[in-house]
Design a protein around this nucleic acid. Structure first.
Lengths: 210, 210
DNA sequence: TCGTATTCGATAAAATTTTATCGATAATTT
DNA sequence: AAATTATCGATAAAATTTTATCGAATACGA
């Protein structure tokens, strides 16, 4: 089954995979109903999402868990990409150490920083290089994804350097809005947006109780 | 203007605020067109979003920047909330130190950890307490939001403790899916989902070039 | 073996979100 | 002063996403 996969669905696929992998249940099969309950989603939605990447559901029992995991891994891993990270501060270190990525076919291969105390060391098993080496290392390895975990003052200039070195997609954790050429993909990670939603939901729930 | 504000709009409001605050432009007014271009959004969308919380746009020039910022701050800050964070590792530290939150009326007031080396110290100016003190501190301060930045093994038990202490909303950065009573709000922050979207976009752009 | 319960997949309906269009208005230019 | 231009706000259309419904298929228990 190879339908067009919507953005909303795409965001949920890693969630399904994670849920399947981390669930301690022993059954050979797993149903959309089960997944839906576990994740707090609609069962039809789950079924529809899964239908977009596989077609192995069996009535009454659901999906063969092993196969479903394989299909999800294959789909998500198909976009296997290596990335570099700039800014080995706390957030940068947290990301370098984050184990979840590799499960989804994603790997941060190196970090860059200006701090001499960090350069040459390994953080979470990943080598940290000087920012001055960024260009040639990215070129040599053919990396296409760059992660920015720097204070916002440095975000734009770093983005420019990354793009100059051949980076095609930037995952920006700084609150700066960076300007890039048309053909470069940027995803801004805005903590405050997430929080606004949480806060709003809390308010709604609280008010509903009155 | 007090329309119903959609979830999608709500997520963009902090983005507008951030953009307004960080932009180095000097003008007294700012137009939806300008914001849209800067953020890569549709101008009608921006206008519609803004219309849901204010009604001060002037033709030809746009919105009074100062007023727009005030309105946004007021709206977002209206849900002012204090939070505690459990798990003062790298990610936890990064969040404790993140300055962006306070701009949106949000404040992490304390951290909790089990590491004796951390307990009693301050991280980014925030006191770190023992997890054993969690219950009474949360109760005493009447905190309603808890942030979990722990390995997934501890996520569920921590969530239970937080809820027991009176927490009503949980922002979960661990990849575990936690089960909570109906009236508790949970927001799972899934890095892999963000990444999947970025990766997919990159793929699309790359393919479009062929 | 047969009936029942559960789940799937597909289709259709509803809801939400984004995008387009257009008249009105205020600043700017001629 | 009049024409032009940029922008707003509102309404309507289009697109997307979610939710509901229903027949078909399969396992399980009587």
């Amino acid at each position: 089954m190879t339908t067009v996969i919507s953005k909303a669905t795409l965001q949920r696929l890693p969630v399904y995979l994670n849920c399947l992998k981390s669930a301690a249940d022993t059954g050979e099969y797993v149903s959309a109903t089960t997944l839906a309950n576990r994740l707090g989603l609609g069962e039809v939605q789950v079924r529809k999402d899964l239908a977009s990447i596989c077609d192995a559901g069996k009535p009454k029992v659901g999906y063969l868990k092993k196969e479903l995991i394989a299909v999800l891994e294959n789909y998500l891993g198909a976009d296997m990409n290596d990335a570099v990270l700039v800014g080995v501060g706390h957030l940068g270190t947290a990301l370098l150490a984050y184990k979840g990525f590799e499960e989804y076919g994603f790997k941060i291969v190196a970090g860059f920083d200006v701090n001499p105390a960090l350069i040459g060391t390994k953080v979470a098993g990943k080598q940290v290089f000087s920012v001055g080496e960024m260009d040639h290392i990215i070129r040599r390895l053919g990396i296409r994804i760059g992660i920015i975990t720097l204070p916002k003052e440095y975000a734009q200039e770093t983005a420019d350097k990354l793009i100059g070195a051949g980076i095609r997609a930037i995952w920006n954790f700084s609150p700066a809005y960076i300007t890039v050429p048309e053909n470069i993909v940027v995803k801004n990670e805005n903590m405050a947006s997430s929080l606004a939603v949480l806060s709003k939901q809390l308010k709604e729930v609280t008010e509903a109780e009155k």
